[in-house]
Nucleic acid binder design. Sequence first.
DNA 1: GCTGAAAGGTATGGAGG
DNA 2: CCTCCATACCTTTCAGC
Lengths: 153, 153
Amino acid sequence: MELDPIDKALLNLLQQDSKQTNKALAYRLDMSVTAIFERIKKLENNGVLKKYVALVDHKVVDKNFSAFCHIKLAQHSRDFVVKFEKEVAKLPEVLECHHISGDYDYLLKVVVKDMEAFREFMVNKLTSIQHIGSTHSMFVINEVKNSTALELA
Amino acid sequence: MELDPIDKALLNLLQQDSKQTNKALAYRLDMSVTAIFERIKKLENNGVLKKYVALVDHKVVDKNFSAFCHIKLAQHSRDFVVKFEKEVAKLPEVLECHHISGDYDYLLKVVVKDMEAFREFMVNKLTSIQHIGSTHSMFVINEVKNSTALELA
DNA sequence: GCTGAAAGGTATGGAGG
DNA sequence: CCTCCATACCTTTCAGC
């Protein structure tokens, strides 16, 4: 799908705040409410707008500990890889799992309550997945920036 | 703020899909629409619900290349650290910046169009920030999981 | 803190340029 | 691809429990 400058401006606004009314969006982009409505529907139907989510404050909900875990598999046969990815995706503590280049195979972002919960997670959940070779964890000391928005120009 | 089990169920639902109507949420949680409305307003006012955002498909908007960059500062005096964090937070290609434990000081998530755009970003934007000692980049081969939702039990 | 109804605003669909 | 208009639905408020 081709995105014109108005689509991109609209996506930038919705990535910042998806609760704006179509009326407010129409005012900002100097268009009619219906025009905005049709563009949004088109972007949704074409899969450009994937989903709308609420973001919660990690501190307030008592999940104020984040870590990044490198993981190396013990074996890399197709079946093991598929199995590992399926298992790890099921863990709610794992917000992200990326297959990456470099010394390790995967990079995981793990969010839990505190260091003790993290230890619990490592011992009882992560390392109980078969075929994990080695792990290396880095703890987040401070979150300087954490955004979900891509700047569309 | 104390969260009761209904608050947590509500937050779990809104983290999955923030466009559900209060009516739909009321039905799922077996409560009145007004009760849902009041709980959401309270969660918003207390900063538990931080913001509502639309998520776009990286592929469709031509940002289908992600990398994680480790960064080590050349010097760690307070002024340099503050300056670095401020500068890096301004870069739209940097979605996340975490101050982490370990061999490096920071871990960045960078999202751009392709490898060439990444090279461009590194040469012209990132490494033009003062006081960066060394960098080490890992490229995302495949995104196994990418979620923003914390499971509240 | 919850309910139900009432009021106002917004999203949605159709007719037409 | 846009605007204007009509209606259905949703959010928001308020009185009362």
